[in-house]
Write a protein that binds this DNA or RNA. Structure first.
Lengths: 142, 142
DNA sequence: ACATAATATAGAGTTAGCTTTAAGTCCGAT
DNA sequence: ATCGGACTTAAAGCTAACTCTATATTATGT
């Protein structure tokens, strides 16, 4: 019913250094310490870490995550802010996915061109110019 | 048939500083300068910038982008490397999208919980524990 | 012609998010 | 009881990708 910093680090795929750093930055305000000063992580703490991971990997800076945690500590008066934050994050992620898709199209186009080029053993300038014209249209066409 | 650094910056949504920085880092080896030393960007350069943007925004570090450019300059002998690079990038983007989706699910769950909580005006610990149990199952269940 | 806006170079400074180092203390096993 | 490994704090160091400063030169509008 409690994990050492090392066990926690392994489970959450981070280093012990990172966990201490997060704590110092105020991202883990609920972690206890035992009689000899060692950190004891609870399942609840792992839950917080999972959420930190989620927000971090979707592009929220640690400061933003800390803000959420501070709101959480403040209590029910900040429920609306927290909801708004998650809604904003949702939108950000959806936009990000859309952007990735757009870039994926370009990458696929390049893969087609290079697959051709590798087959022929040479890079065809014509293809590049065609792509360039396409790009240009996109930039000015809107 | 040529753009100043300022025009280019505006078109590509970057600063002039960034463009000079990219050039210094070897990411824009084809940009010319006129008689008095001012940079003149061609449509081809804008094409390169669009590709830099694509690779950068899909998570490739500038060093990786420079590697591609160096391969390009080397010529047809590196066609296979360049194809492989785009294939690897494609996979990375697809994985990233999958991860974002997973995180989006978590965020949506939170939004539901907080929407409820805001309606009732208080945060229900029960809900949190339910979510926690879910998390725990995911971590150990695989 | 002249003010001012844009550009040039070189180099220092900034920010986020770790990562490493130094100098220890604590604990489990032989 | 002692050794290796995990842990402690505090602080310096690192990397990426800009961002800004200072000083000088060039281009543009009236």
């Amino acid at each position: 019913m409690g994990y050492s910093i090392g066990q926690t680090a392994k489970m959450m795929n981070v280093t012990t250094h990172t966990l201490r750093y997060y704590e110092k930055e105020g991202l883990l305000p609920f972690v206890r310490k035992n009689a000899s000063g060692l950190r004891v992580f609870s399942d609840n703490d792992l839950g917080w870490l999972a959420m930190i991971e989620c927000l971090k990997e979707t592009g929220m800076p640690l400061k933003g995550i800390k803000q959420y945690i501070d709101w959480y500590i403040e209590g029910d008066a900040t429920l609306q802010q927290r909801l708004d934050m998650f809604k904003a994050q949702k939108q950000k992620v959806e936009e990000q996915i859309a952007l990735y898709r757009k870039h994926l199209d370009k990458i696929n186009y390049k893969i087609n061109m290079y697959t051709e080029a590798v087959k022929r053993g040479s890079w065809d300038k014509m293809m590049e110019e065609k792509l360039l014209a396409e790009e240009k249209k996109k930039r000015f066409g809107k």
